[in-house]
Design a protein around this nucleic acid. Sequence first.
DNA 1: GTCAGCGGATGACAGATGTCATCTGATCAT
DNA 2: ATGATCAGATGACATCTGTCATCCGCTGAC
Lengths: 200, 200
Amino acid sequence: MIRLLIADDEDLLRGALAALLELEDDLTVTAEAATSTDAVRLAREHRPDIAVLDLEMPPSDGLRAAETIRAELPTQVILVTRHARPGVLRRALSAGVSGFVPKTTPATKLAEIIRAVAAGRRYVDPDIAASALTEGACPLTDRELEVLRASRTGASVNEIAERVHLAPGTVRNYLSAAMAKLGVGSRHAAAHRAWEEGWI
Amino acid sequence: MIRLLIADDEDLLRGALAALLELEDDLTVTAEAATSTDAVRLAREHRPDIAVLDLEMPPSDGLRAAETIRAELPTQVILVTRHARPGVLRRALSAGVSGFVPKTTPATKLAEIIRAVAAGRRYVDPDIAASALTEGACPLTDRELEVLRASRTGASVNEIAERVHLAPGTVRNYLSAAMAKLGVGSRHAAAHRAWEEGWI
DNA sequence: GTCAGCGGATGACAGATGTCATCTGATCAT
DNA sequence: ATGATCAGATGACATCTGTCATCCGCTGAC
């Protein structure tokens, strides 16, 4: 019997998924979590065979939870995501995740994937894998990513500088570098682009 | 027997939901759609009692599909949404939608809501209803919303002007008005804010 | 007719933003 | 210790953006 932890902030999906998987003879859902912190806590407590984690989950995200779980438990992790962006897959794999599944996967296939991962195999959605291989890695430095993240909400240079503890001029330099690398003409376009690619 | 149409672009949720609802004795899923256009087409074809539509669904959105369905069929519509923002509820209700459910609703409760709507009642998530009543309606005009939508990706004034077929100066006027109404200092902040509120 | 009102456009101005060359201080391999 | 390298800062400059007063053409009430 494969013991599962399911974590997703959408009760609707989590509940439906749990019910669906519970129908399978060899699967059982031992814990459900709606937040990334709960996911880690319940994983420690129940030590499930496999944790199915949503990537977009407050307060941090599924990736952080996956890293923590992989670091201290033998539990295998399958990440489920809505925006299946190549950059995210890259990060997930280096965090030791065994499965990477977009939410466009048919529900009936999930049980198979869980069994494959339980048997020690890995599963990565073929479409995402293909685009991850053809696309280059993130060209931005940590600082550049940091200032781009801070500018997501439309903040001014001064506000960003305040937030990341840098001089306004330095912030403009980093933004300028990021914009040049991404080939766009404003920091807002750069932030949007970086978000689309899954880098921030 | 209540006949259902389920539309959601995430196969995972749609499949799990269909399986879950099919378990109920008095419910049956007669059609599934992954796009808003398919949803309308299948609704015309199968004339279900109730259509459960996801709000965030390409190519247009669930709201458009709901409007079309309500305009030509006796089918009742339940909207399911991830970002349960008050502004969206307002638009949904004036489109003749009978149910408004965030994805944070427990899966087990959905069947009850479907039965209530089938019996001629309405269901609106209490939390969203409360905030919709306390919050004011969208203060922005159609044109202001249009230019804000066009600036979502970080476009420059000239690009926006091109996209909405207006003079650059006019675009700046509308943006300026929108920024003043939202109390922010840049169009990007305004666009972000309007998105958060569910207006664009 | 005419006058108010409205969507759209224009032009001028101040301030914010993007670009670039340059400087400082810390780190580090040799 | 010395030269290379790099994160961070600065200042000057051109351009873009936001603000505001104003103007034009159309429509609709009176």
